[in-house]
Design a protein around this nucleic acid. Structure first.
Lengths: 343, 343
DNA sequence: TTGAAAGCGATACCAC
DNA sequence: GTGGTATCGCTTTCAA
């Protein structure tokens, strides 16, 4: 556990010179630098980041706050962030702020205030006003992934656009009875869910299908999507011919439900999702792809810029999705044909 | 951003007294403590953890190394660790060490050596010898979740036992053609996979079914399980009547595959898993439950003890699973009955 | 180009 | 009980 003093002694220079040589800032002759570098290597010198932080005010660490890590989107974003940070030699401190939990409060009230980071990335938090306030009050750059406001930089999928295009895809296939599956009244992601629902509604209205528009509530998970779809599809009289799911997990839940009910996808039911989840391929799900991993990387990029220049104005990056056609959607068939289709 | 000096001044005491009062260690009169506490509150004082660390050598931070965060088991363990740490007021620094990646190397070579933590939890890493060496060389307590060795404390499911009991469950139901799905030759978790396979083998042998024993390789993911199962089940001549899956994701993949192939579960095929994955309920999967979240908490507990007393000998906690019977397993039926079963 | 010395913000030993 | 002071390990003026 040798410190910079040891390195300096070994190299026959002063601490200051050693520091300059190693950190690469300030004037040092090439020869001296060599000597110091060698000495450091010889001694297996590793700088104490604590001491560095104390002295420079920089922690070389980024805080990440998210409500879940055990969900596809979050885990992927997290991996994206992690990779981008490791590349830059930065540490990642994780805060798991479950909505409504008392620990969430503690995270905002006490953990974050310790400011052991140079910047903060909030993922899918859709923070309450006061939470946003306390993050901003830290005086450190903040970037949000998912969401919609002007006070911090944001990286997010263009939700209304995506939902609109998903709906249009089904309309173009001839469907009219198109249901939306996913937004709830007690929703976890008000912005995401409501803006996707809005996109759907608008698209339906534009096509003169406002009367057909209907949505069934479901949490954004596979089992919830399954349950909600069973409910939605059970009534043969009101059964839709196509579903716009708020996300892939819900879509896949719906596909599984359809299979259980003996409804062939897509002959009897078309399903489209949003995400391109890791299971999408397996269920042949047609969907709009977003790549959360890249969103994580983008957030890091944005954050780095803000750390370098804290006066930078907040930026909002609204990502466009790409349609991935698989075989969970197909043209509307006559009722007879659909009914005849085997599972 | 007031420091302890400000608090001291405000309270009319010395820095040392203020420190004692706030940290709760050492003698301070009740009245003084009150005054200091109030002053701190008034000024919104938050101690600089950096300064604290530098001075005490304690970071109040725990490092967590894992190869994935986007998989059920890992995400759950991570959440368990996080919750346990937050409870204790500790930060969590995450290192995502993908197997075989160059960043993995960098994590061990440089990130970990910065020692910005008081202890390390390695999850499902099954570290190479040299990786284990470098973790131990840090001189900080290390706890492994998953794995099997004597050099660090370990929290792990009793894998051979679990696989044995899963196999026995099927044998008791009358099955003889029981296949194992999941272990591979180029396996990611040599210990886990091979010891589960061993448990299966042993159980088959004990029941005089050694000749029937067979295993099909599959990565431990849902899509991989699906593909492997399609392969395994397609040949009607060699098709097993029951499957022991190396984990639930593989088991669920197998169930989905069976459905696609028109095989009723459990009439034509019984499937048992290990995990009690979040999707297990939805697929009515009979499985042996392990609770990764608790394993994370247990690891933290163990680590805390080692931090308090570094001389403690490594402990190995081998967890027993609990059978959760749902309806993916059933008694062996005659071929006729099975063939007649509808999907 | 280099070195001496003053912080950074806490803790902890040792007198009083 | 309380206060002065050295200390943790590094960076960063400021002189030389």
């Amino acid at each position: 556990m040798s410190g910079i003093a040891d390195v300096a002694r070994q190299a026959g220079v002063s601490k200051s010179t050693a520091s300059r040589a190693l950190s690469g800032s300030g004037y040092v002759s090439d020869e001296t630098r060599d000597r110091v570098t060698r000495a450091a290597e010889m001694l297996g010198y590793v700088p104490s980041t604590n001491a560095q932080s104390l002295s420079t005010g920089r922690t070389q660490n980024i805080g990440v706050v998210m409500p879940y890590v055990n969900r596809w989107f979050f885990a992927e974003v997290l991996e994206g962030i992690q990779a981008a940070l490791l590349e830059r030699g930065l540490d990642l401190t994780l805060y798991d702020a479950k909505p409504g939990s008392d620990t969430r409060e503690r995270i905002f009230e006490s953990f974050l205030t310790r400011k052991r980071f140079d910047g903060l990335i909030a993922v899918g938090l859709e923070p309450e006003e006061n939470e946003l306030d306390s993050m901003l009050a830290l005086g450190k750059p903040v970037v949000n992934v998912v969401g919609n406001h002007e006070r911090t930089s944001v990286v997010t999928l263009d939700d209304p656009l995506t939902a609109r295009r998903a709906t249009e895809h089904l309309i173009e296939l001839g469907h009219r009875r198109i249901a939306f599956l996913g937004a709830g009244s007690r929703t976890r992601w008000p912005h995401v869910e409501s803006s996707r629902l809005d996109g759907y509604m608008q698209s339906m209205a534009d096509a003169g299908l406002a009367d057909e528009a209907t949505h069934t509530e479901s949490e954004l998970t596979l089992p919830a999507g399954y349950d909600a779809a069973v409910e939605l599809l059970s009534d043969t009289r009101t059964r839709p011919t196509a579903i716009v799911a708020a996300c892939d997990e819900v879509a896949i839940g719906a596909i599984i439900a359809a299979r259980r009910l003996g409804l062939h996808v897509p002959a009897a039911l078309s399903v489209i999702g949003i995400d391109d989840h890791e299971f999408a391929e397996m269920f042949a799900l047609t969907t709009f792809r977003q790549v959360p991993r890249e969103q994580g990387a983008a957030a890091v990029e944005l954050l780095m810029r803000q750390i370098q220049d804290p006066t930078l104005a907040p930026v909002i990056q609204r990502l466009k999705p790409r349609l991935v056609v698989r075989s969970s959607t197909g043209p509307l068939r006559s009722d007879r044909a659909a009914a005849d289709a085997t599972v």
